[in-house]
Amino acid sequence: MTIYKLLNYFIATVWFANGLFCKVLNMVPRHQEIVARILGRDFAPLLTKAIGFSEIAMAVWIVSGIYPRINAIAQIVIIATMNVLEFILVPDLLLWGRFNLLFAFLFILLIWYNDFYLRHKPFQQP
């Protein structure tokens, strides 16, 4: 198995775990609290689950290999947008506070490296 595929599965696993365990199953209530503070308490449980299912769908899309460049761009935009909003609006609810933005940036770099560099290397099999 190539490094590209291994990283792809790792990235998909991050999306899947965050979607299923943290949001759909609400095993990390802090995620629902973040949604409540940003989007409002009334619909927070429903919106948190919807976000979770969307993250699971992202994991499936990653593994499917369909339109990988569009997928990578979508991931980067979603991660950047979500983390900048959280950085500004709810830093007190983040696992590492404002340092979450650093980890988000590193994850964005990993996605970029995997899809825009490794995927096109001659020795890699897409």
Rank of each mutant, 00 (worst) to 15 (best):
1 M>F: 11
1 M>Y: 09
1 M>L: 08
3 I>V: 06
5 K>C: 01
8 N>C: 14
10 F>R: 08
12 A>W: 05
13 T>I: 04
13 T>A: 15
13 T>C: 14
16 F>P: 00
20 L>Y: 13
21 F>R: 07
22 C>W: 10
22 C>K: 08
23 K>Q: 04
24 V>M: 04
25 L>S: 09
26 N>R: 04
26 N>F: 11
27 M>A: 15
28 V>R: 07
28 V>H: 12
29 P>C: 09
30 R>C: 09
31 H>D: 12
33 E>R: 06
34 I>T: 07
35 V>K: 01
36 A>N: 08
37 R>M: 09
37 R>W: 03
38 I>M: 14
38 I>S: 08
39 L>P: 05
41 R>I: 02
42 D>N: 08
43 F>L: 10
45 P>A: 11
46 L>R: 00
46 L>A: 14
47 L>F: 11
47 L>Q: 03
49 K>A: 11
49 K>G: 02
50 A>R: 00
51 I>M: 12
51 I>C: 04
52 G>A: 02
54 S>M: 10
55 E>R: 03
55 E>L: 10
55 E>W: 05
57 A>L: 14
57 A>D: 01
58 M>C: 14
58 M>T: 07
58 M>H: 01
59 A>M: 11
59 A>F: 11
61 W>D: 02
62 I>A: 14
62 I>C: 13
62 I>L: 15
63 V>P: 12
63 V>E: 15
65 G>Q: 06
65 G>L: 13
65 G>T: 06
66 I>G: 03
68 P>N: 13
70 I>L: 13
72 A>Y: 12
73 I>K: 00
74 A>T: 13
75 Q>I: 14
76 I>L: 10
78 I>P: 00
78 I>V: 08
78 I>R: 00
79 I>C: 04
82 M>T: 06
85 L>R: 05
87 F>C: 02
87 F>I: 01
87 F>R: 02
87 F>S: 00
88 I>K: 15
88 I>A: 04
91 P>T: 07
92 D>V: 12
92 D>F: 12
92 D>T: 08
93 L>Y: 09
95 L>P: 01
96 W>V: 14
103 F>V: 13
104 A>I: 05
109 L>F: 12
109 L>E: 07
110 L>R: 07
114 N>P: 04
114 N>R: 10
115 D>S: 10
115 D>C: 05
116 F>H: 04
119 R>P: 00
121 K>S: 07
124 Q>R: 00
124 Q>L: 10
124 Q>E: 10
124 Q>S: 10
125 Q>N: 11
125 Q>F: 07
125 Q>D: 13
